[in-house]
Write a protein that binds this DNA or RNA. Sequence first.
DNA 1: GCTGATGCGTC
DNA 2: GTCGGAC
DNA 3: GTCCGACGACGCATCAGC
Length: 635
Amino acid sequence: MEFAALAERAERVAAHDGDIETTLAVADLLADAGDGGANHGSTDDLPVVVRFLLGRVFPAHDTRTLDVGPALCREAIARAAGPNVDAADVEDRLAERGEIGAVAAAYDFGGQRGLAAFGSGRDALTVAALDEELRNLAAASGDGSESRKRDALFGLFTRCSPSEAAFLARLVLGEMRLGVGEGTVRDAIAEAFLTSETAHDGAESGDDDDGPADGDGPELTAPDDAVAAVERALQVTNDYGRVAVRARDEGIAGLREESLRVGRPVQAMLAQAGTATDALDAFGEVAVETKFDGARVQVHYAPHGAEADDGVPDGDAPGGEGTALGPRLYSRNMDDVTDALPEIVEFVADRVDAPVILDGEVVAVDDDGDPLPFQEVLRRFRRKHDIDRMREAVSLRLHAFDCLHADGDDLLDEPLTARHERLHEFLPDAAADLTVAADTDSIAAEERAALDAGHEGVMLKNPDAAYTPGDRGRDWLKRKPDVETLDAVVVGAEWGEGRRAELFGTFLLAVREGDESAAQNAGNDAADRDAGGRDADDPAPPGYATVGKVATGITDETLADLTERLEPHVVDETGTTVSFDPELVVEVGYEEIQTSPTYSAGYALRFPRFVGVREDKGVDDADSLARVRRFAGDD
DNA sequence: GCTGATGCGTC
DNA sequence: GTCGGAC
DNA sequence: GTCCGACGACGCATCAGC
């Protein structure tokens, strides 16, 4: 498939309104992409197209990365745009247009202009060639690799028509903005390859279509069990490209062969926010667990067989019974994090004596076993160097709360209580407590106990629910304390992207910094400031200290309002960033105050969200650094 | 060798 | 992670 | 309900550049 064709079709997909239309357009595209492989013996573009639509070059469980971000992409675009353009120009244009793809397209690098390339096919990019180029680019490392990546990307842009350039820029940044996400692709795979018309094999998928068409508008025709088969295959496989190919070539029956396997991570089951009342209404009896503030970990372990080889459980290894596998630990996004967490590996290896897949949370603890801030977990979680040394500095502990596979039994469809029993059988001293409650008082008591112990809150689970990987459904609810609130001064902003192209997308917040102990924070003295009153490293005006940024919790309407209101007060603008004189006070919700190496207050808000404008407050009434310090518990 | 910039993945 | 908007 | 895409802070790894 020509890259130009993909880019154009992607534009059309993005232009569709409505889920059904979008899904059908994607399904068409997948069917066409699949043709090449199935019928013409050329390279199979289907898996690549599927991943590209999702803004990926590699499947989720693949550890490879492009290591191309906004900065490098801007440089490559600038170079392709000619000698008179530099990265700063590109950023200025980005601030205007609010979309890197549009910026790249507007430069018009001259590749494949019009139909001139017809026949001669001069250097026309194919999807397969682009995929290979990007994979090569990802493989670059070591000295000079950054410029090699820039060169490679530059070379690609050079060969791009405007619509290709837009696609490429968004692809390398992983932001396709097509309105096509995993849900759409899942439905589109079923629609493309598993409807009664398109089904590859005879596996009759049932006649549970939606019945007679209502006549108006297009409809999806893939049967529910086809969608379910695609979904299940995705859950255990985490590879959209592979599942699409399998659906096309082997139909529903082939998809059903993809199943749980020790050594291959499964998508994590997720939770929605909810209250005790929500849970009681929905479940009757509620399974209550404490919600740990750590990092999700999935444990895979197959202790028996030959000598445990700690072998890499690569996707296609037979991996069945009899193949020993040392404990492997996977993050929520299925990265292998085994090496960073040796004590968890040892802990599991010392206790478990059968093949298992466990789900849990790794937390940092102090010498008393009490939980430490999330930041401490981060110091360990993806570490590659000095692991043994950091192991001394930050202790980790596993709280396991689920069991997906035990000694040959797949437990995904078992009720939570049964899975928890199996878990307890294998890891009694790491299994999280699960108490069943039937009224709000006992749930409240559990919640209080969890918070008093320093945890994040509680999980409220349906005791009868199956484990549904990747699902953020209502069977698991998370309950955290109500947000706290701070009245901060808006001292800067950043122009938005995409939907927020014409608006500010982010606001920089500050608190009043009294003269009591202003010198406490380095680089914050008046003497360090330039004539303009703003330190290059600290965009806070004199008398203020920054505490973070907000970008969410704002409706489109009030965002437009804020933009209009603040734009006249811009005192400085570089690239996509502006600063204001202190004027507007804003109420901001947050979950926690954490120490910050980034902001001049020395603190930052965790999970900040906009609550409202404090029209009743002037800047002198805004909260102070002293108050922040007090809330942080550091007074 | 060290520091800052950049990117990635955790929440 | 949070949130708003579209369906 | 579900999906999608606007965005937050943080700490580690890596590379460029001094």
